[in-house]
Amino acid sequence: MLRFFKKKNLLQGLEEQRAQCLQYNLATVLKDNLMQPLPDKNTLFQVLPFLVVDFETTGFDVETNDIISIGWVEISNMQIDVASQKHLYINNGKQINHETAVINHIVPQMVSHGVTLEEAINTLLHHSKNKILVVHGKTIEKRFIDFYAQNSLGLPELPLIWIDTLIIEKWHLLKIGAQFSQDNRLSSVRKRYNLPQYTAHNALIDSIAAAELLLAQMAHIYRDRKVTFERLYEISQ
């Protein structure tokens, strides 16, 4: 949908989308989020506030699979602030199947202490107010959120501000003329930036991992760190 607009108008497009969305009758927390103006397009990267997020899901199909947990951490002034971390387990009343439990190390007890999907999304919307959402490979997170928007809120999609470290990485590889299609999974990309290998995985750890990657990418791609919000947004779409 965004591709419809010309590249230089990407931010403008997002702004229009948010305005359109506000026409609907929205819950306060969502309205509150969308009503905030986008950062000025010339704002430098280092002063931008980010919320780096990761979803753990039971699979890729939004129709049949569920979000199990959401983790996030904030970046401000180019520092990842661990104190801002949040890790929510989602209790959708369904049984956790064995395979998922093994892959994600999530046991039923955790889920029973969890929150509903609605509560989780609302908490995320509240915390991401005035912040740029960052994910590694936004397909999953964006599709699950949009599916929730369509299904539960009757909206076409949620025009949140997404930045994607996976797309930034692909753009960077293209720019430096990398020959072969690279392995761009989070752990593989991190290795290229001399970031530590994390053996454990969950939504929170992976959000911290993605946050570290964003800082590393900015340090390497823009050595002078003079990258603006507009530029950053463009290269990550």
Binding site: Q79, I80, D81, V82, A211, E212, A216, A219
Partner: peptide, 14 residues
């Protein structure tokens, strides 16, 4: 200690 840590990344020379 863990919960108050901040993380930064420095490229070589920074």
């Amino acid at each position: 200690v863990t919960s108050t840590i901040k993380i930064i990344y420095l490229a070589q020379g920074e």
